[in-house]
Design a protein around this nucleic acid. Sequence first.
RNA 1: GGAGAGAUGGCAGAGUGGUCGAAUGCACCGGAUUCGAAAUCCGGCAUAGUGCUUGCACUAUCGGGGGUUCGAAUCCCCCUCUCUCCGCCA
Length: 424
Amino acid sequence: MLDIQLLRKDLSAVAQRLADRGVTLDTARIEALEAERKENQTRTQDLQAKRNQLSKQIGFAKGKGEDASALMDEVTGLGDALKSAEERLADIQEELSGLLMTIPNLPHESVPVGKDESANQELRRVGVPRHFPLPARDHVEIGEDLDLLDFPTAVKIATSRFVLMRGDLARLHRALTQFMLDTHTQEHGYQEVYVPFMVNADSMRGTGQLPKFEEDLFKLNNGMYLIPTAEVPVTNIVRDEIIPAENLPIKLVAHTPCFRSEAGSYGKDTRGMIRQHQFDKVEMVQFVRPEDSYEALEQLTGHAEAILKKLELPYRVVALCTGDLGFAAAKTYDLEVWLPAQNTYREISSCSNYEAFQARRMQARYRSEKNKPELIHTLNGSGLAVGRTLVAVLENYQRADGGVDIPEVLRPYMGGRSVIEREE
RNA sequence: GGAGAGAUGGCAGAGUGGUCGAAUGCACCGGAUUCGAAAUCCGGCAUAGUGCUUGCACUAUCGGGGGUUCGAAUCCCCCUCUCUCCGCCA
């Protein structure tokens, strides 16, 4: 949520920066609502002040045993005008705040301006894609040939866009998760948290999934939602909290399944594990002082990169342009891992600074040195998407004999073994 | 699932219709005292919003929503959550 004060003070500047995102702000509507709000609010408050003053006089008079009927008549006369003014004001406020909830964050000044992903800026490439003598096979072929990856059975149990993994593949998936959590907690200073996988609507509003993106979520019959990312439960830890300044920064990491309806993605990435209704992710979340958040974004992105480096997977870092930014983000770096079978880089992590956008929705604050509560800045990033990392390992570490080498850092989690082979 | 109790400022906790935005204590901030600190004393100290003469005034907020009333933290209704006991249970 943007600061309403900013819209009041400089609406045209806000509209201009949103235009960079490809979002058109209905400034005329906002200005009209604001004018109406202002008029109604002053009138309502005047009437309330009058009522309060008269009511106090009544209490005073009655306390002294005087007759207060004249005063009571006067205040009764205010009744209807006051009530209608209050109702009108509430309507305007509701429309205004409803509107405000659907306005995305403003891009940071360092974000490249552009319409869509073609304007994203590649910052660096790390690692060199391996050369394959034969065309590289994709993870589906590799996994199915090993009898460890089973889509048909997953479809039978659930529906399409689910997966069943067996044996060494399931273990490799678990190994990746453990390795990521261990790295972030032991080397990067994060505290591991275990969180609910379903959350209420307030939490979804806090991080920005609601009210605009309900169709992307799985809603349960008790009014709750399956989490689309650990960002939601973890970030909402600080909703409605005032954090002592000395506790910042707070760095948390969680491993959770993520559930996405993938509405509107029919036909996209239908093959394999790239786009699923359910996938695991290790997510890093940071709560920081406003002045530290851009430094924190660089660090957090580095923490995600460290996983790819240790796994020796080639990747590149991309700064999303204004038109490709997510709703709540002020700035985002995507990490894209090399997938030889697709001969391209695919997103495996997204690291964002939300500035105060989520904090304002959540009323997440810290007590500053001035002893006044101020909004914190929130950040998060995948460290990493486990399913896609598994895909990257299978494809980049595939062997000519159909097996898969196990990256060195994962071997301790795989019983010391160095290769996955077909079991006869 | 059943029965009961409860939800008040950063925390603890008083307040059952009228200068109550809320006693008191703790924490915190400023000052006095001190060589310095502790202790003590004095003062300050919720959040959000509105208006304008930018320092003041006003409004709203005592779990959430609705109602009664001239007036609600206080009375009534609904909801949510917490605690205790019972039942069930990985």
